[in-house]
C-alpha cells in the first residue's frame, strides 16, 4: 500500500531500520548525556533537501505517529515534508506548542524558545525538542557550558545562532525543570544541549 503512495523521487530511509536506528539512538543518547561534545553519526542515510544527514537520521529514529513535528520555513520543502510523512508517519503541525519535535533549518530567524512547548509543571517531559541545523559546531563564538553531563566545563562554538539565543537560554532556567531541549546539527555531526545546561558567553 505504501508503495503506491510514494512519489518516485522519494529517497529511501535506513537500509536496516532495526540496527541503524539503534546505533543512531545510542549516538543521540551520548549527545544528551555528554552535552557539548561533538558526535559523528556512524550510519548514513540519503537526506531529503534541505535536511542534514544527522537531522534526518534523528527523525527516522525518534519520530512516529505519536510525535507531531513542526518545520520552519526553510525546512518545509515538499521533499522534506513527503519524506517525513512517508518514512516517519509523523503528523506535521503548524502549531509550535503542540510539536514534540521542531526542525529548524534557518537558525538565524528561528522562533523564540518559549514559543515552543516547555512541558507542564507536573510533567516537564511533555516538551518540544528542537533540532537546529547550524553552519558549524566549532567555528561559532565559543561559550562555556556547565551542568549535568559535563566534567567541569566544555566550550563548543555553535555557529549561526541569533544574538538573543544564549541570554534567552539562561532565562529559561528560571522555569526549570520545564524547558526545551536542543540538538545542534551540522552535516552528519551533532551536539546535545539539554535544558539543565547553563551557558556563559
Amino acid at each position: 500500500m505504501k508503495r503506491d503512495l510514494a512519489a518516485p523521487e522519494l529517497r529511501p530511509a535506513f537500509a536496516d531500520p532495526v540496527f541503524d536506528t539503534q546505533a543512531v539512538f545510542r549516538t543521540l543518547m551520548s549527545a544528551v548525556a555528554y552535552p557539548g561534545r561533538i558526535f559523528p553519526l556512524d550510519r548514513s542515510v540519503s537526506a531529503p533537501h534541505p535536511l542534514d544527514v544527522a537531522a534526518t537520521a534523528l527523525c527516522l529514529t525518534l519520530a512516529d505517529f505519536e510525535t507531531p513535528i513542526w518545520l520552519d520555513g526553510r525546512a518545509s520543502s515538499d521533499e522534506a515534508r513527503s519524506y517525513l510523512r512517508f518514512h516517519c508517519e509523523a503528523p506535521q503541525t503548524t502549531d509550535k506548542k503542540s510539536a514534540r519535535f521542531a526542525l529548524i533549518a534557518d537558525p538565524s530567524s528561528m522562533p523564540h524558545l518559549m514559543d515552543f512547548h516547555p512541558g507542564d509543571v507536573e510533567f516537564p517531559d511533555r516538551s518540544t525538542t528542537l533540532i537546529v541545523q547550524v553552519p558549524s559546531l566549532t567555528e561559532g563564538p565559543t561559550a562555556s557550558w556547565f551542568g549535568p553531563g559535563i566534567n567541569q566545563v566544555i566550550k563548543p562554538g555553535i555557529a549561526g545562532l541569533p544574538d538573543w539565543f544564549w541570554p534567552e537560554w539562561n532565562l529559561c532556567s528560571e522555569i526549570y525543570p520545564m524547558g526545551v531541549d536542543v540538538f545542534f546539527i551540522s552535516g552528519d555531526m551533532l551536539v546535545g544541549l539539554p535544558r539543565a545546561v547553563r551557558v556563559e558567553v
Binding site: 532495526v18 543518547m29 529514529t61 512516529d64 510525535t67 516538551s127 535544558r195 539543565a196
Partner: peptide, 28 residues
Amino acid sequence: FAYLDEQTKRMIRRTLLKALSIPGYQVP
C-alpha cells in the same frame, strides 16, 4: 530483536532522552 517492537523502543528511547535531560525526574 531484543523482544520489543520498534514502536515501543522508539517510545522508550524518547523517554530516556527526556529522563537524561531532567536528571532525577521520573518520566512516565
